[in-house]
């Protein structure tokens, strides 16, 4: 369960979000929409506790922004997989090592690393690219590596910040399909996007933001 209770995040000279209250259930696919500067990224940052709310409370499973300590944040992040518009892959490691790195850096055993990485590579259909480096892959493939890295630790939720922002429509749809398949396997997905056409008619829950406030929270009608 993810919840934001009357959450505001204010920065030195701007307001990120104000008075946000919402709940996200396990296995839900939520799109956060809105123009640039509406507060989409701020909500994601609040969820992976890169920033703390100025007021209100953010809860992700057993982690509460009001009580979480600095030392507990890594453990929260193991339950929250993150994907970014610019992929943020390590350019000096191949696909396999980029994904395995997430497991090695969190202390998994060598045998488990091998098994789990192979499984997630198959899930995003990149087994044939496992020894390629990021600069040898297309944008869509790089984003699939980023998804695999976020997914490999079996998180509770995937947070995707404009994951298709750098991709062509075909690759964008492919990425969206991968995210949908992840959600169907029980992992919640929260995706910030301003590409309304891509998500139209998919039956997602859509939370629309304007100037840091929720102006709409509804389920999109699924196209036949």
């Amino acid at each position: 369960m993810i919840s934001l209770a009357n959450v505001s995040a204010r920065f030195t000279d701007t307001i990120g979000v104000e008075g946000i209250t919402l709940d996200i259930n396990k296995g839900e696919f939520v799109c956060i929409t809105g123009p640039t500067g509406a507060g989409k990224t701020t909500i994601l940052k609040l969820l992976y506790m890169d920033i703390k709310p100025s007021s209100g409370r953010v809860t992700v499973e057993e982690f509460d922004s009001g009580t979480i300590t600095r030392k507990q944040i890594p453990y929260l992040r193991r339950k929250v997989g993150m994907i970014f518009q610019d992929f943020k892959l390590l350019g000096d490691r191949n696909v396999y090592d980029n994904i395995a790195f997430a497991l090695r850096a969190t202390g998994y055993k060598r045998a488990d690393v091998k098994k789990m990485t192979a499984r997630v590579l198959a899930q995003v259909d990149l087994n044939h690219r496992r020894y390629h480096f990021p600069d040898q892959l297309s944008g869509g493939e790089q984003q699939r590596v980023a998804i695999a890295r976020a997914l490999v630790v079996e998180p509770y939720v995937i947070l995707a910040d404009e994951p298709t922002g750098n991709l062509d429509p075909e690759s964008s749809n492919l990425i969206l399909d991968v995210l949908i398949s992840i959600q169907r396997q029980g992992t919640s997905v929260v995706m910030a996007t301003h590409d309304y056409h891509m998500i139209d008619g998919r039956g997602f829950r859509r939370i629309h933001l304007e100037d840091g406030k929720v102006t709409d929270d509804s389920i999109d009608v699924q196209a036949e």
């Binding site: 890594p74 997430a102 850096a105 969190t106 630790v153």
Partner: peptide, 10 residues
């Protein structure tokens, strides 16, 4: 940054 992202402790 990546290590922090995936939940590595300090």
């Amino acid at each position: 940054w990546t290590m922090r992202l995936v939940g590595a402790t300090d």
